[in-house]
Design a protein around this nucleic acid. Structure first.
Lengths: 92, 92
DNA sequence: AATCTAATTAGATATTTGTCTAAATTATAG
DNA sequence: CTATAATTTAGACAAATATCTAATTAGATT
């Protein structure tokens, strides 16, 4: 189950910020990196964790790799949290 | 901002299980511990992290300490995730 | 083919995390 | 007021995490 992975992936602020960036649309690894004060290697490390958690997916194109949000797992987390919060509003 | 703390708190499986236990109702530290194969000291450590993240609160009573879920912060996380997922269903 | 560019992988390292044992704290009950 | 019970705190330590530099891979362009 990748559920645990997902929570861990979300635990890092840089990774959450990457996801926020991707809300606007897909972005290459380099473009993502330019928003942070980190080396490309570190960005690559974070991207791998997000990818393993199925929070993003990649498309290779030319010699760029584009990353996009994958919201399907976010859905699962919303359910878990919603359940934790209690059945106040079934329509999550 | 305790938001980052909350995500980190949720990243550990034992801590998520503690929260799930508390859904049913409040529980003393010892009672919580009896559900895990860990020493009381370790349980105490996890409880402190959950408390700092404002995911639980404690009430001292007799010489027990009872812990309960605090769902108000869960609400904030639901919002963040809901926003990340996109505006498909405004009524989160 | 040679080289440039985008990105990842490998290896090293400092920091953080989860766990334990032992000691300290705090309150209740004799 | 001493002994017991519930829990936390302190200190140690192994494992995991985030970061870097350097090296490698894979495509594209000349």
């Amino acid at each position: 189950m990748a559920f645990a992975e997902t929570f861990k992936a979300l635990a890092d602020p840089a990774r959450r910020e990457i996801l926020t960036l991707l809300k606007v649309g897909r972005m290459s690894a380099g473009e993502i990196g330019s928003h942070f004060d980190m080396t490309g290697a570190t960005i690559s490390y974070h991207l791998k964790i997000l990818k393993n958690a199925e929070l993003i997916y990649e498309e290779k194109e030319k010699n760029f790799i584009y990353y996009s949000l994958n919201t399907s797992v976010v859905e699962d987390m919303l359910l878990w949290l919603s359940d934790l919060r209690g059945e106040q509003d079934e329509k999550n």
